[in-house]
């Protein structure tokens, strides 16, 4: 069995700030990391390999520095990793990313199973896994919270609004997982450092059969054209001092706002 786990190299969104002075997002200054939902996908792949015997390959589409994320994923237990990168890699939309990943899956494949996290922490589109499945013309299940491997099929549970659905899915297939599926193993910096770069291959768009020109922002399905702050801070009244005074003030504010009715 061969398993492809898609991982995204993302900025730590808790460190991304909007600078009102320049009306710009300070993204490049933020530290980068592996998307945490993809860690769950990787763990699921590694667990499945333990049960069924498989090769687990990490696939990543991103800037050159994303090799660090691929290395980390290999340290977490993947057999090897492939990074598809190029000058276009910084500004891809979901459809562009998915086309490159589907190209990678074909060029390095065939794969029986493609796993990914449900969403990326930065974009939060939750589109790429479903797009990859569509481009590969294979079944897709989103929101997988339990996964059992068999021969030629997998059994999955997924939570949808108000229900848990169970499916059997014939392979090849694409699944995206939630953080409920497992607890990913942690690796030390030393373990990541020890990963030999020979396990991380780098490819261009052309290598995986995608025309670079089609990845330009103008050709993309969606393009970011403006950014503004999400909310202006509230003017807050600071209340401190003796607990009993605090309680009196808080109750007064609740009553004034009429929010208990």
């Amino acid at each position: 069995m061969r398993i492809l786990v898609c991982v995204k190299h993302v900025p730590d969104t808790t460190e991304v700030r909007f600078d009102p002075a320049t009306a710009e997002l300070k993204v490049r200054q933020a530290p980068t990391k592996i998307n945490n939902y993809d860690e769950n996908a990787l763990e699921a792949g590694v667990v499945l390999r333990g049960a069924l015997g498989a090769e687990v390959v990490v696939g990543c589409v991103g800037p050159a520095e994303a090799s660090k994320t691929v290395k980390e994923a290999v340290a977490m237990g993947a057999d090897r990793g492939v990074l598809v990168t190029g000058p276009w890699a910084g500004e891809l939309d979901a459809a562009g990313t998915a086309r490159v990943l589907a190209g990678l899956a074909t060029a390095e494949g065939p794969f029986d199973l493609v796993l990914a996290g449900d969403v990326s922490e930065d974009g939060y589109h939750s589109l790429v896994p479903g797009l990859v499945a569509s481009y590969l013309s294979v079944p897709f299940v989103r929101g997988v919270s339990a996964l059992d491997g068999g021969t030629g099929t997998v059994a999955v549970d997924r939570a949808v609004d108000g229900a848990v659905e169970s499916y059997t899915v014939a392979l090849p297939a694409v699944l995206s997982v939630t953080t409920a599926i497992n607890t990913p193993r942690t690796v030390t910096k030393l373990q990541v450092m020890k990963v030999s770069m020979s396990k991380v291959a780098t490819r261009s768009a052309a290598d995986v059969g995608v025309d670079e020109a089609s990845l330009a922002p103008q050709a993309a399905a969606t393009r970011l054209v403006a950014v503004r702050p999400a909310a202006t801070p509230r003017r807050s009244e600071v209340v401190s001092g003796e607990p009993d005074d605090i309680v009196a003030t808080v109750i007064a504010r609740i009553d004034e706002a009429g929010v208990l009715a």
Partner: peptide
């Protein structure tokens, strides 16, 4: 609707900012 055609606003980076996306299809 702008010079860019149809646009959609959505939250970016977990809600730090709102981005306007041109929908180019």
């Amino acid at each position: 609707r702008t010079d860019e055609g149809l646009t959609a606003d959505r939250l970016l980076y977990g809600g730090v900012a709102i981005g306007t996306l041109a929908l180019q299809r």
